[in-house]
Computed example of a mutant assay.
Amino acid sequence: MSGLLGVAVLGAGHMGADHVRRLDRTVSGARVAAVADPDTDRAKEAVAGIDGVSVHADVAAALDAPGVGAVLIASPGPAHEEAVLAALGRGLPVLCEKPLTPESAGALRVVEAEARLGRRLTQVGFMRRYDAEYLRLKSLLDSGRLGRPLMLHCTHRNVASPPGFTTAMLINSSVSHEIDAARWLLGQELTAVTVLRPRPSSGAPEGLGDPQLVLFETSEGALVDVEVFVNCGFGYQVRCEAVCEAGSARIGDEHTMVVTDAGGAREDVARDYLVRFADAYDREVQAWVDATREGRVAGPSAWDGYAAAVVAEAGVRAQESGARTAVEAAPRPGLYA
């Protein structure tokens, strides 16, 4: 195991356990060296059958465990800032699941800490940048074949929201993926946001304003609209259509198994993000491991995490006020130019 990158995985819940499995069975060049979770029984279950892994209740103990050379953070968002800063303090490269931090102020503190180090160590887990369809759309837009992008039409649907899901989380949890994807696809900043709220679906929990239509303006005059519907009841769907001066391109139409029998034809619909974006997660973590072993960071940066947070906060203010709300971001440090 001496040539493998030892990774400490922080968080052993749904996402963390999936990353433990991925590092152990799918990704090359790395191994799970330590796992930290306040629920150590859950952590032990996640690493059952994997040799050489130490289990900890405390983040610092996992970061300091023998063989740890990098950190993958899959704990709840409120724990991210402390964990990222602890990793930076030890000079450890980090892959942090989104959000980098729940609030932009915390994300800015991470950006500033990294800027003081003078080098990037943090990558944020915006996995759509690694999805095959999103990569094809990005390549097409960058080629200029369809002319200048004018609009992005996006759809983000979930079967059902988890317990405790709030109206604000439609923006800062769900739509945060579209925020990053739009910035990346267009190469533009999001400068203002308006949120329109229809009558809530009867399938939405009491008090949850679901669905919503979120409209972003960009720094170069494009528009991005997102239909977010987290209690649609029938499946997990993520779609994006780019409308350009000389054509359009759409991704996200289901290309899954179609079953035909005496009752007719049925097409499978993914039930959650770990199914829809399984390949993207694999490519994301593999790319992170490869880059880390080469001493570099190539994916979404801490600045991208901050940008998503500050835009999402403007979106939540727009939810509450019903008015167009400007995005007010801090100056970008030279490290992220």
Rank of each mutant, 00 (worst) to 15 (best):
V110T: 03
D279W: 15
A314C: 05
V159K: 08
D253Q: 14
T292S: 09
H153S: 12
G207L: 07
C232F: 15
T292Q: 09
A326L: 07
R22E: 10
S301V: 03
I251T: 02
D290M: 07
K138C: 09
V259L: 14
G3V: 14
G11T: 03
G334I: 04
R239Y: 13
E254L: 14
R296D: 07
R332S: 06
V111S: 06
P78R: 09
D261C: 06
G187T: 03
P149S: 08
E112L: 06
H19N: 09
E189T: 12
E81W: 10
S54V: 06
P162T: 03
G144S: 04
S139D: 13
G252W: 08
L274N: 13
T26M: 14
L108T: 01
T155E: 15
Y281R: 13
V259N: 10
P93K: 06
G125Y: 06
S301I: 08
S54K: 08
E284S: 12
A107L: 04
E45C: 15
F165W: 06
K44S: 15
A309Y: 02
P211H: 00
S143A: 03
L137G: 05
G29K: 06
V275E: 11
M169T: 09
A329D: 05
V53S: 07
G164Q: 08
A222V: 00
Q237L: 15
G305R: 02
A318N: 00
E189H: 11
V275P: 10
A79G: 08
V47E: 04
A246W: 12
A46K: 02
T292I: 07
F229G: 11
V175P: 11
A270T: 14
R283G: 05
R183I: 04
A246G: 14
G305Y: 03
V214P: 00
H153T: 11
P163A: 06
H177C: 07
C240S: 00
P99E: 05
A302N: 03
M15L: 12
P149C: 07
Y134P: 13
A182M: 01
A278D: 14
A30T: 09
D131T: 01
V228F: 05
A43K: 04
E133T: 09
A298W: 13
H14I: 15
H80F: 03
S321M: 05
P76F: 01
T191D: 02
R136Q: 09
V269F: 10
A48N: 11
C244F: 06
P200I: 08
E284Y: 12
L208T: 01
S173C: 14
